[in-house]
């Protein structure tokens, strides 16, 4: 679980810095400049997908584009690295069910 530092939270609540987007259809709020992965964590979403191998839950791990655990569907495109894409107004972020997607 993560929270904003108080002065940043205050600024975010006050002003134009807030970006409205959705997580699995639910409205959410982020700060301009947040990566999608950071925005998920800031909104209390620690698990963003389950794996295609065992179905285990995963969440952001490295935050620098190397571990590929923060894969999410962004505006309909799957398998995007949440930590490498900046959140933008109106963006639709969906968590991924990798296990269901690849089962025959």
């Amino acid at each position: 679980m993560f929270r904003r530092l108080p002065e940043i939270e205050t600024a975010l609540n006050a002003a134009a810095e807030a970006v409205a987007f959705t997580i699995d259809g639910r409205p959410a709020k982020a700060r301009a400049g947040d990566s999608v992965a950071a925005a998920l964590l800031a909104n209390g979403v620690t698990a963003c997908r389950n794996t295609p191998v065992s179905g285990a839950a995963r969440g952001p791990y490295c935050m620098m584009g190397i571990c590929f655990d923060c894969l999410v569907t962004i505006d309909g495109t799957g398998n995007r690295q949440g930590c490498q894409v900046r959140v933008s107004p109106g963006m639709a972020v969906e968590t991924q069910n990798g296990k269901r997607e690849v089962e025959r």
Binding site: R31, G33, S35, A38, A39
Partner: peptide, 8 residues
């Protein structure tokens, strides 16, 4: 990047 710190 985001001024996020752990909570809990």
């Amino acid at each position: 990047t985001s001024g996020l710190v752990p909570s809990g």
